[in-house]
Simulated assay, not measured.
Amino acid sequence: MVEMKIIKGDATSPQAKGPKIVAHVCNDVGGWGKGFVLALSRRWPEPERDFRQWHRARAGNDFGLGATRLIQVTPDVWVANMVGQHGLKPGSAGPPVRYDAIGACLATVGREALRRKASVHMPRIGCGLAGGTWERIEPLVTASLCERDVAVTVYDFDERPTMGSWLC
């Protein structure tokens, strides 16, 4: 098992050599415009474009809670769009985060990381707009990635006002 690293920095600028996967949580209603996705879109247009196309064609594909798509953005970097949030706002069922869906997404990311011999980089997924807690997310990351010997770096961005509320 490898230890998870938590550092200050920007998950869209992964600090590692070799292949890298930048993982983040998306919603299941096709919304892309707040939180960490803004930083992704500023860095690479491909993840947003793919997410919107994936959502538009959802009647004929696997789009939905627990689904993951990897989009190559440079020769050695992929972005994992992980659908782990139901809706956009808290409701009678609580916050939009869906821990079981995030667990399924992370299992997919783990398989892909092993296949590509990649490290995984992420903000504290599911803790911002999705309304989850790191205490519930961290064990999912550990089980799906660290226990499978996938190197994981979690980034705490230190300029919250400019990035929105995507950090815990």
Rank of each mutant, 00 (worst) to 15 (best):
R160N: 12
D10P: 13
G128S: 07
R56T: 12
Q15M: 14
V73R: 04
V154N: 06
F157K: 01
W134E: 03
A151W: 09
G84M: 01
S165M: 12
N81W: 04
R56H: 11
W78V: 09
W32V: 09
L129S: 07
L129P: 07
C168T: 15
C146E: 12
M1W: 10
V25N: 11
E3I: 14
G87Q: 07
C26K: 03
I71H: 06
G110S: 05
S144R: 08
G30Q: 06
R116E: 08
K17D: 14
A101C: 08
R136A: 13
P47N: 09
P19M: 12
A101W: 01
W44Y: 14
R116V: 11
D100H: 11
G103N: 04
H24I: 03
R136W: 08
A16R: 00
V109Y: 04
K8M: 13
N61F: 04
S165Q: 14
W78M: 07
C105A: 03
Q85S: 12
V2K: 14
C105V: 02
M122H: 06
D156H: 14
N81E: 05
H86Q: 15
Q53W: 11
E3A: 15
R43N: 08
R136N: 13
T74H: 04
K5P: 10
V2G: 11
V37E: 00
G110D: 01
V83L: 08
A67R: 00
Y99I: 09
M1T: 13
A57I: 10
T108E: 10
A101H: 01
I102R: 00
N61E: 03
T142P: 00
V83W: 04
R43S: 07
D149H: 14
A16Y: 07
K34Q: 11
E46N: 12
H24E: 02
P95R: 06
D62Y: 08
W44E: 05
D62L: 09
L145E: 01
I125P: 02
S119N: 06
G66A: 07
V120E: 01
L114D: 13
D158Q: 15
G9L: 07
E159W: 10
R148C: 12
E159Y: 14
H121Y: 01
R52A: 12
I7N: 07
G87K: 10
P123Y: 00
L70Y: 02
G35A: 07
Q72T: 11
G103L: 05
M122D: 04
D158F: 11
G18W: 12
V29Q: 10
D62E: 06
H121D: 00
A39D: 13
G33W: 05
D100K: 10
M1I: 11
V29A: 11
M1C: 13
K34C: 10
G84W: 01
I137V: 14
G103F: 02
D149R: 15
W78I: 04
M82Y: 09
T142G: 04
